[in-house]
């Protein structure tokens, strides 16, 4: 059980590191020119009648 527990802790550390590394790489590579602000659909929809989101 001890080995399993240590492996779980190491796995959590590895995931944290991997996410951090990927995010950091993407922050540095970010190009504002290709970015577009997401403002949603300008027209109003009713989600509870819209099959796309219910």
């Amino acid at each position: 059980m001890t080995m399993l527990g240590v492996l779980l802790i190491l796995a959590a550390c590895a995931v944290a590191l991997a996410i951090g590394i990927i995010a950091n790489r993407n922050v540095r590579a970010f190009n504002e020119e290709t970015h577009e602000s997401f403002l949603g659909d300008r027209k109003e929809r009713d989600a509870f009648e819209d099959p796309s989101v219910s």
Binding site: I22, A23, V27, H35, E36, S37, D41
Partner: peptide
């Protein structure tokens, strides 16, 4: 999945394909 939110909408902090 509907193509409304695409990679160009992601901000600088993103996980890409992950």
């Amino acid at each position: 999945s509907k193509g409304r939110f695409t990679p160009r909408h992601l901000g600088p902090w993103n996980l890409g394909k992950w």
